[in-house]
């Protein structure tokens, strides 16, 4: 790894509760530009909470610890400020918004980000030519642009739509929250290709997943295992393969020391 790469995300001693119940406990994580980290763990281990807290979900309460994104105090920023700085969460359950067309949603989001970056806003014509190529890459039908956001989309279409948004917004840090859940193998490959096409020395990814399957297509640099709200183990890609073979039980039972 390139240790000279700039630090993108630095999390230290993060403790998070929802409705008074502690979900995450002393999480430490550093992510540098160019890296891809996989966060794995059994159901209920706090993976999705972790993803949502990074995006700024207000239903979670940060009790302790710190998080810095591009040297700014992440916890001080609103969700929209985080997004404009280049943080993107691909939702596990993308939200349906009846009455708002997908294309307008995307264009509004992109222009909000561009304004923040001091760039001109794109008009409808420029936007459509920008989005068309990305739509083809995601093997999405153009009519999905003109439908209400995610409304009536199949599970696979919703997940592709998340990746399409990522490709349009070009974030520097992308968090994929169980993007593989509910995808068949063909859709999984399309999603993985979309993610891989965005990998670069300037960008970083955090891939939250229950299964190792996705990591066959999106190769991680680091793998962390969350268990009961803590990072119970960290390692390289081989850790994911070990988890696939042995399951999560041995980690939950505390076998092997935390690094």
């Amino acid at each position: 790894m390139n240790t000279a790469a700039r630090e993108m995300l630095a999390i230290s001693g993060l403790q998070v509760a929802v409705e008074g119940k502690i979900i995450l406990n002393s999480i430490d994580l550093k992510v540098r530009a160019g890296e891809l980290h996989a966060i794995m763990g059994p159901n209920g281990s706090g993976k999705s909470t972790f993803a949502q807290v990074l995006a700024g979900r207000e239903t979670y309460e940060v009790l302790q610890g710190s998080a810095h994104f591009l040297d700014q105090d992440l916890l001080d920023l609103s969700p929209e400020e985080r997004a404009r700085l280049g943080l993107f969460l691909a939702f596990q359950y993308p939200v349906e918004i009846p009455g708002v067309s997908n294309i307008y949603f995307l264009k509004t989001a992109l222009n909000a980000v561009r304004r923040h970056q001091g760039l001109d806003e794109l008009d409808a014509m420029d936007f459509i030519s920008l989005v068309r190529g990305k739509l083809a890459a995601m093997q999405m039908n153009e009519d999905l642009l003109y439908r209400s956001v995610n409304e009536g989309f199949s599970g696979g279409e919703k997940k592709r739509n998340e990746i399409l948004q990522m490709m349009v917004l070009e974030p520097v840090l992308t968090i994929l929250d169980e993007t593989d859940s509910g995808l068949d193998i063909d859709a999984l490959k399309v999603v993985a290709d979309g993610v891989n096409s965005m990998r670069s020395p300037e960008r970083a990814f955090i891939v939250v997943t229950h299964y190792q399957r996705l990591l066959n297509y999106i190769e991680p640099d680091y793998v962390h295992v969350l268990s009961a709200g803590r990072i119970a183990r960290s390692g390289g890609p081989e850790l994911a393969i070990e988890l696939e073979q042995r399951g999560y039980g041995w980690i939950e039972q505390g076998e092997g020391a935390v690094q």
């Binding site: 609103s78 997004a83 918004i97 509004t108």
Partner: peptide
């Protein structure tokens, strides 16, 4: 839905 918008950079009022 509000959070979804905001997570994409759109301010809360809009």
């Amino acid at each position: 839905a509000l959070f979804y918008f905001r997570s994409r950079g759109v301010d809360a009022t809009t």
